[in-house]
Design a protein around this nucleic acid. Structure first.
Length: 849
RNA sequence: GCGAGCGUGGCGGAAUCGGUAGACGCACUGGACUUAAAAUCCAGAGAAAGGUAACUUUCGUGGGAGUUCAAGUCUCCCCGCUCGCACCA
């Protein structure tokens, strides 16, 4: 224990006994509501710096909004289902639930030591049957509404462990534990019909004005609405057609091949009596299911011996290939390749020596010998080599081509989405059981509501291969609720994104025995400010947006957008260190001497590497607890926000932490050294030319604006400035003393969202009885913000040559005269008259010569 | 590969609208206090060249081009790094 910990504990206990941060149970009619939420953590064992940053950001907002008179909801919980618990179980022989609950308890204590303003009475943990039973009901509602369905889909299959692998468990095409070559396997799985809301999910993005543009763009591109055409190509060798989707019907005359997905029905059909094709498809199926890996692979294909006829010219014959880069999930699972105007197609054509005929020419290209060599031309231009499309631009040619296809009955305009339905089946133990009973006679029957929750069995063997629930001796064997014959439970569990798609609504009413009450959810929702990592920019946020819509359509609540405001924070990075033999070294084992680094234990020299995201594998982690123990959590919080803007990556540095620590101590010292005034200040009697009062009120404005716009680092800089000024103030007269005291009061309030414990401490040192967290946010008085004398730069030809100062009421002529009378300007003009003088009042004077 | 973002002194960063680049902090240097150190306080500082000095000049926001009276900010190209790519959360 040190005095920082005592200080912080004292105030944490006060907040706790005062219920300072408990949100009202019922809607508060007198105050506007504000819901602040940080992405809840996966209980991996200990909090890390990423959490500290995330939760500090949220806490600043929550405390600031409370001070501004809002009824604030600021809850915390645990995203406690997931793969790591199963891995830990296998490695350490501990049950996933024990491991998880132990971690939850540890991390909760750690979070509590940070003094975050959570309403802990609302805590939820998603692995609790009292939580997941509600989502089982939701799933059944989705199922009955046609929003959940079953279909076959590919998974990564480890043939040795007989288990499905997550993409991250596949390393270089091999299983991470077994090292066996991973295969793709088709499994019958549950899906949620996210595509049902594709149009709405896309269109509503625009209305999310408090979301970062980049996240909106990413979601836009992810949903990926493409307007184009479906075209059918007649196969010459048999009486069959290939349906192709394209966004570029204008380039149809440049088509030099057709490419089918390896799992396209025609491909599969051909493979039945052609071993070369079968081998090729098998080869493709050894590939990962990861789109990134598929696209990075070399473009490969195999000729099918089939050819199609060009729809616009029966004389043109186009070969049909099966290609590893065509996805069955997108469009029709078949494309036509136009190498001249698509880079992937071009690479493929070069590999297989297929013709490359340009059909779009850049507008400014006059000569007639336009050729494509190694770069496809994808911009707008003039159509060439294309019969009736010649001379048109790309947009018009698209239209014209579709008209013609429709007239000939061999194609039509069509819309395709990149967005796919959400596959939610996982062949794992530590997840929420899917509440379905598979009956040979009745099909898939939902578990009756009164039998929910379907709880996970505790006695489970995670060491045997295969799906643990499927392998359990009796768990899956039940009677069909409909016909009462023997049936089996669904043994898959939900994707853990399922839990995190509605936890934010559960927080609004976490004790009720329905998922949440509609009226209370309607009161608190949407989340006004959601804060978390950018890595969730697409999936989690899109799933939640979908889920809220589905819940709305099932009558659960009345809103469809869950998150009104979004802030995506950057990563916490740290310098890496390696020993001479190339092993990673923990930063706390490194000391610096004469600009070289040495290992504190063995004394050997170590070498500093790049600054990278903190990760256990690179050992460049700093344990938040060690920081809290040594400096207190306020220091950690101040440092978290002081250096980098929240959305950008930040670098953890010891020197920075020391700086924050000194800053807080300095404020404490100033308060201790400042005597209490005989009389408090009366602002009405203070002259608006007084620079001290001006600085104080400017600080209120700057810090307020900074918090509102998430520029917390600027807030801290402004607080430093205010502190620097206050520390230099005299207190010889009563007026000076009361002014300094007033400045300190404002400083305490302005710093309270960032360093809440110290703010309380100095507030009480100054003699206040109520908690600072219960005070109103200070307001600035415009009277003290006015600037009389304006100082601006004077440029000649855009280069700064001096500056002038004038009264804010000065006319343009006066400003010009002042600028031209500067000796530095006169010297440069040498008596000549300037060509032009640009005067932007309160900004700049630029003299053009 | 595709989509998105970022790049400013020795370092983290500031510059809200295209208008005095480098606020604030760290590290550094000098001074005060101290037997000494730590802590604290005061002062200095983008780089280069010139000057005893006050100062002067030139360069400068990853690189290159462009728009503009004026570009860290807008446009195009290039380089580097980061995130996401549907079973990690």
């Amino acid at each position: 224990m040190n005095n920082k910990q005592d200080l912080e504990k004292k105030w944490q206990e006060r907040w706790k006994s005062n219920l300072s941060f408990n949100a009202s149970k019922k809607p508060d009619k007198k105050k506007p509501k504000y819901y602040v939420l940080e992405m809840f953590p996966y209980p991996s064992g200990n909090i890390h710096m990423g959490h500290v940053r995330n939760y500090t950001l949220g806490d600043v907002v929550a405390r600031y909004k409370k001070a501004n008179g809002y009824n604030v909801l600021h809850p915390m919980g645990w995203d406690s289902f997931g793969l790591p618990a199963e891995n830990a179980a296998k490695e350490n022989n501990i049950h996933p639930s024990e491991w998880t609950n132990k971690n939850v308890n540890t991390m909760k204590e750690q979070l509590k030591s940070m003094g975050l303003s959570y309403d802990w009475s609302r805590e939820v943990s998603t692995c609790d049957p009292q939580y997941y039973k509600f989502e089982q009901k939701m799933f059944i509602d989705f199922f009955q509404k046609g929003l959940a369905y079953k279909k076959e889909s590919w998974v990564n299959w480890d043939p040795v462990e007989k288990t499905v692998l997550a993409n991250e468990q596949v390393i270089d095409g091999k299983g991470w534990r077994s090292n066996a070559v991973v295969e793709k396997k088709l499994l019958n799985q549950w899906f949620l019909k996210m595509t049902h809301y594709a149009e709405d999910l896309l269109e509503t993005i625009e209305s999310l004005t408090n979301w970062p543009d980049r996240v909106k763009l990413m979601q836009n591109n992810w949903i990926g609405k493409s307007l184009g055409a479906n075209i059918s190509f007649k196969i010459i060798e048999k009486d069959e057609k290939i349906e192709v989707f394209t966004t570029r019907p204008d380039t149809l005359f440049g088509a030099s091949f057709i490419a089918l997905a390896p799992s396209h029905p025609i491909s599969l059909n051909l493979s039945k009596n052609n071993s070369t094709i079968k081998n090729f498809i098998d080869e493709c199926n050894k590939n990962s299911t990861s789109e990134a890996i598929i696209e990075k692979n070399e473009k490969k294909g195999i000729y099918t011996n089939l050819n199609v006829v060009h729809p616009f010219d029966e004389g043109i014959k186009i070969p049909v290939y099966i290609a590893n880069f065509v996805l069955m999930e997108y469009g029709t699972g078949a494309i036509f390749g136009c190498p001249a105007h698509d880079q992937r197609d071009l690479e493929f054509a070069i590999n297989y020596k297929l013709p490359v005929l340009p059909v779009v020419k850049p507008k400014n290209y006059i000569k007639s010998d336009y050729k494509i060599t190694d770069t496809a031309f994808t911009d707008d231009g003039v159509i060439i080599n294309s019969s009736f499309l010649n001379g048109l631009n790309v947009t018009d040619a698209k239209k014209r081509a579709i008209e013609e296809l429709e007239r000939m009955n061999s194609g039509k305009s069509s819309t395709t989405w990149r967005l796919r339905d959400w596959g939610i089946s996982r062949q794992r133990y530590w997840g929420c059981p899917i509440p379905i009973i598979k009956c040979n006679y009745c099909g898939d029957i939902p578990v009756p509501t009164e039998e929910l929750p379907v709880e996970l069995p505790y006695d489970i063997n995670l060491d045997s291969p295969g799906n643990p629930l499927d392998a359990h001796p009796n768990w899956k064997f039940v009677k069909c609720p409909k016909c009462n014959k023997s049936a089996e439970r669904e043994t898959d569990t939900f994707d853990t994104f399922f839990e995190s798609s509605w936890y934010f609504i559960r927080f609004t009413d976490p004790d009720i025995d329905i998922p949440f009450s509609k009226s209370i959810a309607n009161y608190w929702m949407p989340v006004d400010q959601y804060i978390g990592g950018v890595e969730h920019a697409v999936l989690h946020l899109l799933y939640s947006r979908f889920f809220t819509r589905a819940l709305k359509d099932c009558g659960y609540l009345s809103i469809s957008e869950p998150f009104k405001g979004l802030m995506t924070q950057g990563m916490v990075c740290h310098q890496t260190f390696k020993s001479g033999d190339g092993k990673w070294v923990f930063p706390h084992e490194v000391e610096k001497k004469n600009n070289k680094f040495y290992h504190t234990v063995n004394g050997n020299e170590v070498f500093s590497g790049r600054v990278e995201k903190m990760s256990k594998s690179k050992r460049n982690v700093v344990d938040p607890l060690s920081i809290v123990n040594k400096y207190g959590s306020d220091t950690a919080r101040i440092f978290m926000v002081s250096d980098s803007p929240p959305e950008r990556d930040m670098e953890w540095s010891n020197a920075g932490v020391e700086g924050s620590y000194k800053f807080l101590n300095r404020i404490l010292r100033i308060v201790n050294e400042t005597q209490k005034p005989k009389k408090l200040i009366n602002l009405d009697l203070v002259d608006n030319k007084n620079t001290v009062i001006k600085k104080i009120h400017q600080s209120i404005k700057d810090v307020t604006d900074g918090i509102e716009s998430f520029r917390f680092n600027v807030c801290i800089a402004k607080l430093y400035e205010l502190t620097n000024m206050i520390s230099k103030l005299d207190s010889k007269t009563d007026f000076e003393t009361s002014l300094k005291f007033y400045g300190l009061e404002i400083l305490a309030q302005l710093i309270s969202p960032f360093a809440p414990h110290h703010a309380e401490e100095i507030w009480s040192l100054m003699g206040h009885k109520i908690l600072i967290c219960d005070t109103d946010w200070p307001k600035f008085d415009k009277r003290f913000l006015s600037v009389e004398q304006i100082s601006i730069g004077v440029q000649i030809n855009g280069k700064l040559r001096g500056n002038i100062s004038y009264n804010k009421n000065a006319e343009k002529e006066e400003i010009q005269e002042l600028a031209l009378s500067l000796s530095s300007v006169k010297n440069r003009l040498g008596g000549e008259k300037p060509k032009k003088v640009i005067i932007v009042p309160e900004r700049i004077v630029n003299i053009v010569v």
